[in-house]
Amino acid sequence: MTSHPHDPGEPHPAEGHAANGEDLAALLARLLEETGKTQKDLAEASGVKYPTLNAWITRTRGTSRVDPEQLRALADSLRGWGGSVTPKQIFESAGRPVPGPSDAEREARLLKIYRGLSARQQRSLLGIAEEMASSSRA
């Protein structure tokens, strides 16, 4: 008998687990129950498309390529409803490194530097940033 790589009953091979052993599917299911909200409520509040959220919860889609802003939005929405979760737990449960805090001043400084570069330098900088982001996901 062959094993299917995306068996809904099993975690996706690229998935991680939060410190308490929950993957993203288990964590979200628990928090939805805790807050009395539905998947559709969470999808609407976080801006994540319902089919995508449902696929994460049913483990039919992996989370290794999830946009970090989507994970932050999930955490923010759940916390807004009284759910006991931190962004760190959400990232860990998705098997993703926890990004550093966003700082408006640092972002503005980086954007100013970027805008001062030539087109070639901007492409190089983007390549470096993309490489850094992909290596942090691995």
Rank of each mutant, 00 (worst) to 15 (best):
M1S: 13
M1G: 12
T2A: 11
H4V: 14
D7T: 13
G9T: 11
P13D: 10
A14Y: 00
E15A: 15
E15M: 10
G16N: 07
A18Y: 02
N20F: 06
G21W: 01
E22P: 01
L24W: 00
L24R: 02
L24Y: 01
L27K: 00
R30I: 02
E33W: 10
E33I: 08
E33S: 15
E34Y: 02
G36Q: 07
Q39R: 15
K40Y: 11
D41E: 05
D41S: 09
D41K: 06
A43N: 05
E44Q: 11
V48W: 00
L53N: 02
T58R: 13
T58K: 11
T63N: 05
R65P: 01
V66I: 15
D67M: 06
D67N: 15
P68F: 08
E69N: 12
A73V: 05
A75D: 05
S77P: 06
R79Q: 15
R79D: 05
G80A: 08
G83M: 02
V85K: 04
T86Q: 07
T86D: 05
P87H: 04
I90L: 12
F91P: 12
E92Q: 15
S93T: 14
R96W: 03
P99M: 07
G100C: 04
P101Q: 14
D103F: 04
A104S: 15
A104Q: 15
R109G: 10
L111F: 07
Y114T: 06
Q121M: 09
G127P: 09
I128Y: 14
E130P: 02
M132H: 12
S134C: 01
R137L: 08
